[in-house]
């Protein structure tokens, strides 16, 4: 029993131990971080081909969950002239227009039905909002994408969770042991150990969240963004404001509306500076209101990313690689927002 409380570690000088403990915690977190980067092995899988009959709503789901699907559907309805945005002060109302609805697919029809009464744009993301109405579609997209291993599932989260608890056990275990040893030697100044342990635990918890997309999902989204990059530029240029009256082109090709596909693949940020910027602004306002009122996520994706991308290159989030992984835009766009839906 003496060896437990009378050994070089237990009797190590306080300052020296703190230095050692900082190093130990750092190494533990480093190892945990390394395991985290290796735990997702989907980068070894081959990327699925891009289907010619691509579904913009499924791509929107991949990029940001049901919230992004809702945003894309609302955009589709606006593009078809079935709804319009009216801004009063800081709120934006979405209203049905008198236009006859053309042939809509199911998801668009559900959205149009939900919008039969005038709605505030932030209602889309509230309880019983449009996002809730579209959950069934979101679940179907989720199931299909999960089957293709593009979304991080419970298995990966469980694996990482195990490693997280091991890291926590190591940090807390060594700290607790030293505190016990200190007490047994009549030393009560253990605040340094507690602070280092607390910082280590906070970092471990922060590190333990996985992105929404697997490496395969991220690579697939990047591939889509590369494939349709020229479409983004073409559609942006086609819709830049001019003196001419607004014309909503009905042209589609391969059964896919090019602008809707661009929104699905790159997010509403690409609409900044186009004739549809009011749509983009409405979601930016909804985003701000959400942030100040409820604090929940919801309106944050897509619109929030557009603020810096008014140039045609769509430089900030629409360009793809960094944001789609949900890593470098602070979770504000791409994969980062999907967790709430």
């Amino acid at each position: 029993m003496d060896i437990l409380l009378d050994n070089p570690l237990a009797s190590m000088d306080g300052t020296l131990f703190l230095i050692f403990y900082v190093g130990f915690v750092g190494m533990t977190l480093l190892l945990f971080g390394l395991i985290k980067t290796r735990i997702d092995k989907t980068d070894r899988l081959s990327l699925p081909p891009i289907p010619p009959n691509i579904d913009p709503y499924e791509i929107a789901y991949l990029r940001g969950g049901t919230n992004e699907v809702a945003r894309s559907v609302v955009f589709a309805l606006m593009q078809k002239g079935l709804i319009e945005f009216k801004t009063t002060g800081t709120t934006t109302q979405i209203k049905r227009t008198a236009n006859q609805s053309p042939r809509l697919n199911q998801i668009e029809q559900i959205a149009l039905d939900w919008l039969k009464n005038s709605r505030d744009s932030k209602d889309i993301f509230q309880t019983n909002g449009l996002v809730t109405q579209l959950e069934a579609y979101g679940d179907a997209f989720k199931a299909r994408l999960a089957q293709q291993q593009m979304l991080v599932g419970e298995d990966l989260e469980n694996k990482l969770s195990l490693w997280k608890w091991l890291a926590i056990l190591a940090i807390v275990g060594l700290g607790s042991y030293k505190i016990l040893a200190a007490f047994s030697h009549g030393k009560l100044n253990v605040f340094g150990i507690i602070i280092i342990a607390a910082v280590g635990l906070i970092i471990a918890f922060v590190m333990s969240s996985l992105p929404r997309l697997t490496k395969l999902g991220t690579a697939y989204l990047e591939r889509l963004q590369l494939a349709f990059d020229s479409l983004k530029n073409q559609t942006q240029q086609a819709y830049m404001p001019s003196g001419a009256p607004k014309v909503v082109p009905s042209a589609t090709f391969a059964g896919v509306d090019p602008l809707l596909l661009s929104v699905g693949v790159f997010g509403a940020g690409i609409l900044a500076g186009t004739v549809y910027s009011e749509y983009n602004n409405a979601f930016s306002r909804a985003n701000q209101q959400q942030a100040t009122s409820s604090g929940s996520c919801g309106a944050g994706c897509g619109s929030g990313c557009s603020s810096g991308s008014s140039d045609l290159s769509g430089s900030s989030c629409s360009s793809g690689s960094s944001c789609s992984s949900g890593s470098s835009c602070g979770g504000g766009c791409g994969g980062g927002c999907g967790g709430c839906s």
């Binding site: 891009i50 010619p52 691509i54 494939a227 349709f228 990059d229 020229s230 479409l231 073409q234 090709f253 391969a254 896919v256 090019p258």
Partner: peptide, 13 residues
């Protein structure tokens, strides 16, 4: 040509 990269993917067949 890069200009019609997107169109190619929508018209693969």
């Amino acid at each position: 040509r890069e200009q019609f990269r997107a169109d190619l993917f929508l018209h693969q067949a």
